[in-house]
Design a protein around this nucleic acid. Structure first.
Lengths: 200, 200
DNA sequence: TTCTTATATGAACAATCGTTCTTGTATATT
DNA sequence: AATATACAAGAACGATTGTTCATATAAGAA
């Protein structure tokens, strides 16, 4: 099964966008890597921005939100530490998935430059995670599994290190440096955090 | 006291770099905002990269490391929660300082694109903060002020939210959205974290 | 006053940018 | 067999890029 030219363009474009950013990537760089002329690109996409939009709309949700999001939270939160472990594992997995990592890199580059990306970051990425976590912590508090506190604050405090560790792992892997030390931080974070909040 | 043309160029360049990134900023955009012709730039700097290098070497340390770094840690750490408060306040202050914020924005844009910036991020920014914090936590543990744990892990866990909140505040202020809610997170983080680790 | 130094201008350069247009060539449809 | 469609190449466009050059002007040193 051959990949279509259109899909090749999207793959190459994401690769380059994640390395050089949108402005730093030229149509000729994309077409060159695909193996066609720059004019042939326009048989598949209206213009450069159309390539970007296609990538963003197809990856924004799948690369940023977690599988865990779809499951019902009520019962799932009752698993306590296991819930957090699964949440973090899913988060960590994304940073080692090829396409997700590239989209994450691209998002980081454009975060300070593009309002559209900022909205995706806050809405698709941040808020949705905070919602799940705060609901889960709320339930855990009701059940007396963890100490009482502001669920939203707790969600922020739990999520921040995950994000930061993911960012670090991504940065380290750009220079092909060893990221295994950072990788263990995901698990250590769970242990540390649960130790702090649990009533047990 | 008039500002020299050279300083004006540096100010304008930092402003534009922090908005559009290095590649997205042209010599003509800089010269135009300064009020001179593009060729006049080359009377002050060898080339575009020279402008960047001058900015980076003059701001890297001052915009990223904290005042607190210079004080002796041994006695300072004994202040416990107050130490963390001062550390976070100093961190928060940087995100509201004009030049520091611009440099931070620029660093975020280039983090995934420039190896030099990545090295600055890890060495000047991250490692130096971790060192101070882990030393302080170590002392606090020795004194029985906080629960025993891995000081380096605790430092990572304490620092991550500070970074993430700073990033959020920076992003929000780009679109001139209200960042006061994020601003309070700095203080809430101290309370939450101290509550978790303190033996009291 | 003469000479040097610093800093400005405006024109020009080669390279690259996104995009368009004409043309050629397969493949599929009628 | 004739026709339409999909996709490619290659040339060309106007705009913008970083940089250089010759030249002009004003200030300070000799």
């Amino acid at each position: 099964m051959e990949k279509s030219t259109k899909d090749k363009i999207l793959d190459v474009a994401l690769e380059l966008f994640s390395q050089k950013g949108y402005k730093g990537t030229s149509i000729r760089m994309i077409s060159g890597k695909v193996g066609i002329r720059e004019s042939a690109i326009y048989n598949h996409f209206k213009n450069k921005e159309d390539i970007l939009d296609t990538i963003v709309s197809s990856l924004a949700s799948s690369s940023l939100s977690l599988l865990i999001s779809q499951k019902p939270i009520n019962e799932f939160a009752l698993k306590g530490k296991s819930f957090l472990r699964e949440f973090a594992a899913s988060f960590k997995l994304l940073s080692y998935d090829n396409k997700s990592e590239k989209f994450f890199r691209f998002m980081m580059i454009e975060l300070m430059q593009s309002k559209k990306i900022r909205e995706i970051f806050f809405n698709d990425f941040h808020k949705s995670h905070l919602k799940i976590l705060s609901q889960a912590f709320f339930i855990m508090m009701q059940e007396g599994m963890i100490h009482s506190s502001d669920p939203m604050l707790m969600a922020q405090e739990f999520l921040s290190p995950l994000f930061f560790y993911r960012m670090q792992a991504t940065i380290l892997r750009i220079d092909k440096e060893n990221s295994s030390q950072v990788a263990t931080l995901f698990e250590k974070h769970i242990d540390f955090f649960w130790e702090m909040i649990s009533t047990g």
